[in-house]
Write a protein that binds this DNA or RNA. Sequence first.
DNA 1: AATGAATGAGGATTCATTCAT
DNA 2: AATGAATGAATCCTCATTCAT
Lengths: 211, 211, 211, 211
Amino acid sequence: MVNQKTVARRERRIAARKEQILDAAAQVFAEKGFHRATTKEIAAVADVSEGTIYNYFGSKNDLLIGMMTRVGDSQVPPEIFEQEGLDDAREFYTTLIQRRHTFVRQNKSILQAVLSEILTNQEMRERYNEQIVEPFLSMFEQYLSVQVEQGRIRQVDAELTTRYLFALNLGLLGMLILGDPLLQSKWESDELTESLTEFVFDGLGTRETGE
Amino acid sequence: MVNQKTVARRERRIAARKEQILDAAAQVFAEKGFHRATTKEIAAVADVSEGTIYNYFGSKNDLLIGMMTRVGDSQVPPEIFEQEGLDDAREFYTTLIQRRHTFVRQNKSILQAVLSEILTNQEMRERYNEQIVEPFLSMFEQYLSVQVEQGRIRQVDAELTTRYLFALNLGLLGMLILGDPLLQSKWESDELTESLTEFVFDGLGTRETGE
Amino acid sequence: MVNQKTVARRERRIAARKEQILDAAAQVFAEKGFHRATTKEIAAVADVSEGTIYNYFGSKNDLLIGMMTRVGDSQVPPEIFEQEGLDDAREFYTTLIQRRHTFVRQNKSILQAVLSEILTNQEMRERYNEQIVEPFLSMFEQYLSVQVEQGRIRQVDAELTTRYLFALNLGLLGMLILGDPLLQSKWESDELTESLTEFVFDGLGTRETGE
Amino acid sequence: MVNQKTVARRERRIAARKEQILDAAAQVFAEKGFHRATTKEIAAVADVSEGTIYNYFGSKNDLLIGMMTRVGDSQVPPEIFEQEGLDDAREFYTTLIQRRHTFVRQNKSILQAVLSEILTNQEMRERYNEQIVEPFLSMFEQYLSVQVEQGRIRQVDAELTTRYLFALNLGLLGMLILGDPLLQSKWESDELTESLTEFVFDGLGTRETGE
DNA sequence: AATGAATGAGGATTCATTCAT
DNA sequence: AATGAATGAATCCTCATTCAT
């Protein structure tokens, strides 16, 4: 009994420490990038000694992996695709990007750090694809196919369209990181959703031109 | 006279050396990323000594800046926005992304290296914004405003739409780097243009829903 | 009364713990050598926590000293030199190296670790000399002198000869550690004694050449 | 032509630097042992920067390997076993150990460092066996067999005897390192040769007992 | 102008030791 | 008395940069 409690407490302490360190790492990585970040500084920000980091993570690289796992775990959950009452594709998309933006708002630093490393690190890239991109793409693809079949959206290529939508979001994240002031302000006050939905569903063409 | 010629020749030689070194740097940066690339390896690839690099560039960082300048210089030229006969916005967009894709095809590795660094390097980010992003955005914004005024495209917010289109392209580059196989194959054989134009101009909504 | 018993019990417990830890240390030192052995691993093998080690030994170095003391204590006991009936020097030598080989067989790993450290650690070297080498040398020297006086062995320089015999044994230990397969097999099956005695007493020379 | 000279000079410079660094390493290793020796100190003794060490050796471990190779190269050369006129085994042995002692005198530090590490480092042990021990043993064995056949020495087991002689020398080296004052003084003034030869050839036994 | 050896600051990682529980 | 998490000094190694030739 007591043992069980002790073990549980211990596990919670370990998890908390890991979080504490990952938070610090995320902050420093985002600020300086993975390579310019030093374990010394991460330790300082996490308010632990350098040695302690290595009691919880095998290497500096493992911090990055830990962060990616975290990002993966807090992504859009699969259930959302299976909810009832999301017949209206517009509404669904709105919900989706709202969630997504909330998520990005909460994890911008981490995403920034992770993305940067992903761009030049083969191994990270593969992890990211497997854990985050592919699961999402295949689920969304599936959803789109159904919508197309049911005539709720235009007859589009579900595979490609999925990728365009993903790209749009990825690109927006990129521009936020780049620091575009307009996007930044709209995004922080959550004013992008409507305009974005319109862009995606109505396109640029005038109605007449529409084919 | 003679002096002028000599000076000119000298300048050409210097420029050539710089190119030679930047080419090598681009190759190595793309392969390993900025931080994992060593001056030693760049020198080896450029077939010069490490010391020589420093005769032409002040630092390793300057190589990155040099590359970004290069990328900026070979971007879509401003003239394209001023050409006559590009009244048809669809056609114009098609042309634009075709050029863009050709450019990306030729510079993917460099873009990869530069982007990665941009994400976590304040200074690089500012340079990139000033030299590349902002000029393009303002020109495109201008173009879109005119198109909207003339009723050639829907009544959209030109500023935001410009950013969405930029984001879409940036995101596609991101997904290419991530290695999405579908995009990769379509992109290499230049099959994305039409489908992308359709996505952008017609949106996902069925025509009736279009409001 | 009770107090005395308690104290005695306590001392026995402490001694037992020390043994337990030294055993573990011996095992790990032998496997990895002193420097590559970590207190963490020693603790794991001893099935105690790292902290506990430091309740019984002041430092990692003290473990080594403890081991050497142990080795010293189990060396050839001085009494052997005083036993009656060991008039025959050959027989005596045979007995001696048999004991010695038995001892080495039981402590090879420890000796390996201790010797390695002795070679490059001044302090250890001094301890080893004082505690082990010198006592043995002086006793053996004494013994040899008597044998020479009594005409039981040739007129040799007792001091030097003692050192040659010590060296021979030390060197054999060295070769065993080095892993010479021939010595190893003969040594394990205790077949070296006779041949060694012959080498030491008869030399290589043919009898006629003997002078 | 010039090129050849330049290359040769370069190679000489490199070899010299390597020597310079190995000398320093030998000194520090011998003093403190491999593990306690720091690259910082080696650099200081060699009067170069730490970085320079790594221009010539891949790792601290490589310094050790480099030292062992050096030791191997300066060992007793195989030719000695093939010289004419060495019929007299005593004389031959005398020559051999004189050479050996000279060698040890010149390389004591290195041997000390190498031996210590050999005792606890599997890889080093294997290298040492292959490069130094085995070649010597097999050559000496061969020599002894012939001597035995020709009746120049007693009918001894050549294999074992070779090992005894090797052990004797190894052990003497060990005792020198341990710091035995008697051996030290005799060895430095080269007074051991005769006494050692006598020990090896005549044994301890009185002539009558010689069976 | 080119070279490449030398430099040394800097950084990730290890591990003996401590100490609060 | 035992624990084991926290510590941080110490160390090997890398690599951008310099500079004598």
